[in-house]
Design a protein around this nucleic acid. Structure first.
Lengths: 205, 205, 205, 205
DNA sequence: GATGAATGAGTTTTCATTCAT
DNA sequence: AATGAATGAAAACTCATTCAT
């Protein structure tokens, strides 16, 4: 896991350069969205000439996919590390929420890119959100599935479970990223765990 | 409420034509996203000449804002009608979820536009998601606030509450819209209500 | 004949504008060849903005095909007029040569475009020289065929006959166009007729 | 003769490598024409890296000139060998046609390059077709001149004679190369000799 | 000698927008 | 009110060429 093929890394793009471009692309795509972002901007942000980007990536889209894959890979690694070795299903779910909130909070730019842009890159091609998010979805699905099998989590449709999980976490991330509220990270994390696990109703306690 | 200013309706755009353009814009913007959508495409879809669109709307962006405002207005009306007159806070929250799921399900195209594009139209301008979603957020906030005050809902930060609500509902909408799963609408609605109210844990029951 | 479909004339390109663009394209493509010619240059030569060319022609290649088709059409008309009504096979062939030399001489720019560029536009597509030259080839083939049937012309393979005819006439056109020799038009015409009809050997007389 | 200066052979390009590049360039330039051909393609076809081509040739144009010169050199040698030692003027002319047809037929790719591209390489520079074709033109001119002086060939302008000769032979070459007709080589050769020497009219016999 | 990497200088094409009718 | 025609301003992508290794 977390060792995806990285189809895009053409012509022996060195790790260093890959990082450089990754960072630059992240910043630019997050701020402007795929369509409004200019390759020139990414190049500039990476301290390279525009043509150099094209030397390493056939198209703007390829660059974008590279960004997504690499980011999700890192996210999956982060999350997996967090939930690794936890036996208790309930705690695993808690950690799952927490790990996502942490990651989304730390990489707000990337989060926006992934959550808002992935849906429209190229529906007809094989670059669906499902596929892009696959590494993380694998971890999330696994944890939730296990918890469900253990009877810790309700017998809900697994699609609904996963989408709810993502919706909750992502919405908060985007919401707070957009409004840069001073709302403390810790309290947000706690609140989301609470809602996901127990719902909003008071009597549920 | 539901009687927004409609700054855009220039030069006596007839209701009929407004509908025509609204539908066309919805389809096109949903399918391609704001940036990739062409004014020409909207015109064509509306059976009009490109210049005619410009006769009624100063810019592409104005057309887009018109679409959003009109759509959200309708959504707010729909939701408000659904929760109107319900005294019981808990039931109101249930209906709130249900009403959104229904609306999102019926207007999938519009949902995609609102939920994925709003965030990036024009950050520096006054067209923030907050403002665009205002009519609906007002209703949602009201219902949740009331329920919280009544002690039905937990004392969570209201921003978190609202974002959670939206995240849950919206994610499901997009998720199912994208994959056109055969998952029955009714069951999805029920599941989301369940999760939002009681969480995913089984022991909560 | 000489009333081809003109598939390219999109969006009601007026006759006047068509002429304008035709002339401009001719000059530019002749001087620089297809690949080196810039659409910008054609636009400028036509007194239009570059985008205006693109308003009327989808691509540079389309513009080029328009140029070829229109030119050949005119050539076929010219030639056909010259040989029309001539009963004597031998005289018809003479006139055929003369008409081509005249046309090629008058429209040297166009001649270069047709004879040097056509072969490589798009081999795999349906824009072969054969098809482009069709209107003229039809006339040439007809005249030669008739003369052959009448026993005026030798029983040579018709492909060889046509290609020889073209080769002779075209080579002279390009040769003299390139070197702008002071060689008198009339003498060249006579010489080519002589060679085509009787060959270069003296004893043949 | 046939021992041109070869200005291009820089940095001790070995014969083997020269051949390798010659073949590759021939194929690529023939297929795509000068402007559309990429140096990269030639390199690839030669099994070399792009920069290696630039190690041996200052520019793409230099590479092209190298190709032309080397090819024409070979052609001139071939033709000269064929007509060498022939006393009879008429037979020499016959052999001249035959030798060209043979060469063009065998090296169709090169033929296309020479006959279609030479005219536009660099008109303002000294790379005119006249100069490029010089080695062969020398032989052709010599043979025709001699025949004319001997009274075997008519007293036609020598430019017309040469252009007619080339036009006839080249047109057939290109024609048959393009359409890969199954027309037998031998018959074509005979027909062209016939036309060039005696013309197309039957009564001439 | 050979070449991977980098880039400057274009060029085609796209589109929102304007305007005369 | 409506629209065909025209265009300015981008922006993606290409490719010959250079250069450090």
């Amino acid at each position: 896991m977390a060792t995806a093929p990285n189809i895009d890394r053409e012509r022996g793009l060195s790790d260093e350069l890959a990082d450089q471009i990754f960072e630059a692309a992240m910043r630019v795509f997050a701020e402007r969205g795929f369509a409004r972002a200019k390759v020139e901007e990414v190049a500039e942000a990476a301290g390279l000439a525009r043509a150099t980007i094209y030397y390493h990536f056939r198209t703007k889209r390829d660059l974008y996919v590279f960004l997504l894959q690499r980011g999700i890979e890192q996210m999956a690694v982060h999350v997996e590390t967090e939930v690794a070795g936890i036996e208790d299903g309930r705690e695993a779910v808690e950690r799952l929420v927490a790990a996502h909130v942490d990651f989304f909070d730390r990489y707000q730019a990337f989060t926006q890119v992934v959550l808002l842009e992935t849906w429209r890159i190229d529906p007809e091609a094989d670059i669906t959100p499902e596929r892009i998010l696959a590494p993380d979805l694998a971890v999330v699905g696994q944890v939730l599935q296990k918890a469900r099998n253990e009877g810790v989590v309700k017998k809900l449709d697994s699609g609904v479970l996963v989408s709810s999980f993502f919706g909750l976490v992502a919405a908060a991330a985007i919401y707070f990223a957009s409004y840069r509220t001073e709302f403390p990270h810790a309290r947000m994390k706690k609140a989301l765990v609470e809602i996901f696990l127990h719902g909003v109703l008071r009597e549920a306690d």
